[in-house]
């Protein structure tokens, strides 16, 4: 087996090939770009009419960056579960999984290849939106390092949501159930954690950091803290150097690793040695 054979896992190669041959993929990229472009140009259109001016105010450039980034974050939370929650259950429904499981591919290789292929497609979509960010650079106000950190954060969220999607897809036979549960998880971490943090901050005395920790499990809260350091200070207090994303990253790294490990564990049946006396 040569180096190319070793580097390119067959499951990964198959996923790339099949995904890129599908018309659905092209439609997905196109729809995503159209949605993002409409949002970005809509923002420009609305802000151009501010204060009666018929031109874009360059001081709004940073706000445009935040707006595009926030919109991208929402779209990622819509797209990633849809792309990953059917990767194993879909094979099961198509009756191709059993055949794949009798090959010499390890469970880890199948799960990681499926996840990597789905995420590669999401990365491709997100990279395809880079030209939209050029509008921000046209007016200035945002550094390339900010853009890179935002993209790394997107990647992290995609891996996390993808791992959870693959986990549900492995544990449940029906893709529909896996998709619903993955979107349910997304709604909880995007919406419920945010609302709960707001509720806690309203009822708890000032200086209590519990609301901040809960907000640390919310992707939007973490993204805001990444874009604006002052946001974390408002939550944790001026004296604290703790950033919301400092909680978010380790917490969801644990969730991601756990989801991947459980998916690998339960992809194949547990072929434990039966009891020696022939009874269980």
């Amino acid at each position: 087996m040569n180096v190319t054979d070793r580097l390119i896992n067959p499951v990964l190669e198959k996923e790339f090939r099949l995904r890129m041959r599908s018309v659905k993929s092209i439609v997905a990229i196109l729809s995503y770009l159209v949605a993002m472009a409409l949002l970005a140009f809509g923002f420009l259109y609305v802000t151009m009419n501010d204060y009666g001016m018929q031109a874009f105010n360059p001081e709004r450039s940073q706000m445009l960056f935040y707006f595009i980034t926030g919109s991208q974050m929402v779209l990622i939370c819509f797209m990633t579960p849809g792309l990953t929650a059917g990767v194993i259950s879909g094979e099961r429904e198509k009756q191709t999984l059993n055949i794949l499981l009798t090959t010499r591919q390890s469970s880890a290789s199948i799960i990681l290849s499926k996840l990597a292929a789905s995420l590669s497609f999401m990365v491709l979509i997100v990279i395809a939106t880079l030209p939209l960010y050029s509008m921000v650079f046209l007016f200035g106000g945002v550094s390339p390092s900010e853009l890179i950190s935002v993209f790394l954060f997107f990647l992290f969220v995609m891996v996390m949501l993808g791992a959870v999607g693959v986990f549900f897809s492995t544990m449940f036979k029906k893709t529909m159930v896996a998709v619903i549960l993955t979107y349910g998880f997304t709604v909880v971490i995007y919406g419920f954690t945010g609302l709960f943090a707001i509720f806690l901050s309203a009822i708890l005395p000032r200086g209590n950091m519990l609301a901040g920790y809960v907000l640390g499990t919310n992707p939007m809260g973490a993204l805001l803290s990444l874009l604006n350091e002052d946001f974390s200070r408002e939550v944790f207090g001026r004296a604290s150097s703790l950033q919301i994303w400092h909680i978010f990253v380790p917490f969801y790294t644990l969730v991601t690793v756990l989801a991947i490990l459980l998916s690998i564990r339960y992809l194949r049946p547990i072929l434990r040695k039966p009891a020696g006396n022939g009874k269980q």
Binding site: M1, D5, P10, V11, E13, K14, R17, L18, R21, S22, K94, Q95, T96, N98, I99, L100, T103, R104, Q105
Partner: peptide
């Protein structure tokens, strides 16, 4: 009962499983 992958040619189908068997 078994299924096949859409958008796979016959040779690609066998090639994929061959690679999966190492």
């Amino acid at each position: 009962f078994f299924g096949v992958y859409d958008n796979f040619k016959t040779t690609e189908y066998l090639d994929f499983y061959g690679a999966s068997y190492g």
